[in-house]
Computed example of a mutant assay.
Amino acid sequence: MVTILESIKDKLVSPAESVTLSGLGMHIPKDDSPRTDFNWVDFYHNLSLSGLQSCSFFQNEIGTFNSAGIPLITINQALMQSYNQYNNYGRQNLRP
């Protein structure tokens, strides 16, 4: 999935959106962690996990969410933070 998203990125993401996302700072594994640069491969990976929150793999490796999308149980803080930040940034900065 990552390879496919990488190959079609320029058809789905405008140059302005690309610049905006590339300039965002990530804070992983916690909100107060030092800033790291947005990484497109990590974005594609986390985007490809969307919709898998009910799968046992996701729940056993990353954690679970309540009906409002708030983490209930976090198994791996770094993976949960990465998943949440990349998907939230994508929703906020990409056209529908």
Score class of each variant (00 low, 15 high):
residue 2 V to P: 00
residue 3 T to D: 06
residue 4 I to G: 10
residue 6 E to V: 01
residue 8 I to T: 03
residue 8 I to Q: 10
residue 8 I to Y: 11
residue 9 K to P: 00
residue 10 D to E: 11
residue 10 D to C: 08
residue 11 K to N: 09
residue 13 V to Y: 07
residue 13 V to G: 05
residue 13 V to P: 00
residue 14 S to F: 13
residue 14 S to L: 13
residue 17 E to A: 06
residue 19 V to L: 15
residue 19 V to F: 12
residue 19 V to H: 12
residue 20 T to F: 07
residue 20 T to K: 15
residue 20 T to S: 09
residue 21 L to G: 14
residue 23 G to N: 15
residue 23 G to V: 05
residue 24 L to N: 06
residue 25 G to D: 14
residue 26 M to Q: 01
residue 27 H to G: 07
residue 27 H to N: 13
residue 30 K to V: 04
residue 30 K to A: 14
residue 33 S to W: 11
residue 34 P to R: 06
residue 35 R to E: 05
residue 41 V to P: 01
residue 44 Y to P: 00
residue 46 N to M: 06
residue 46 N to V: 02
residue 47 L to K: 03
residue 47 L to E: 04
residue 48 S to P: 00
residue 49 L to H: 12
residue 50 S to K: 11
residue 53 Q to F: 04
residue 55 C to L: 12
residue 56 S to E: 02
residue 56 S to L: 06
residue 58 F to A: 04
residue 60 N to D: 13
residue 61 E to M: 14
residue 61 E to S: 14
residue 62 I to P: 00
residue 63 G to N: 10
residue 64 T to N: 04
residue 65 F to A: 06
residue 65 F to D: 01
residue 68 A to F: 02
residue 68 A to E: 03
residue 69 G to V: 03
residue 70 I to R: 10
residue 70 I to H: 07
residue 73 I to F: 07
residue 76 N to W: 09
residue 77 Q to M: 09
residue 77 Q to V: 07
residue 78 A to P: 02
residue 78 A to L: 05
residue 79 L to P: 01
residue 79 L to R: 06
residue 79 L to V: 02
residue 80 M to H: 05
residue 80 M to I: 03
residue 80 M to V: 02
residue 81 Q to C: 13
residue 83 Y to D: 04
residue 86 Y to N: 05
residue 88 N to D: 07
residue 89 Y to T: 02
residue 89 Y to P: 01
residue 90 G to D: 06
residue 94 L to T: 03
residue 94 L to F: 07
residue 96 P to I: 10
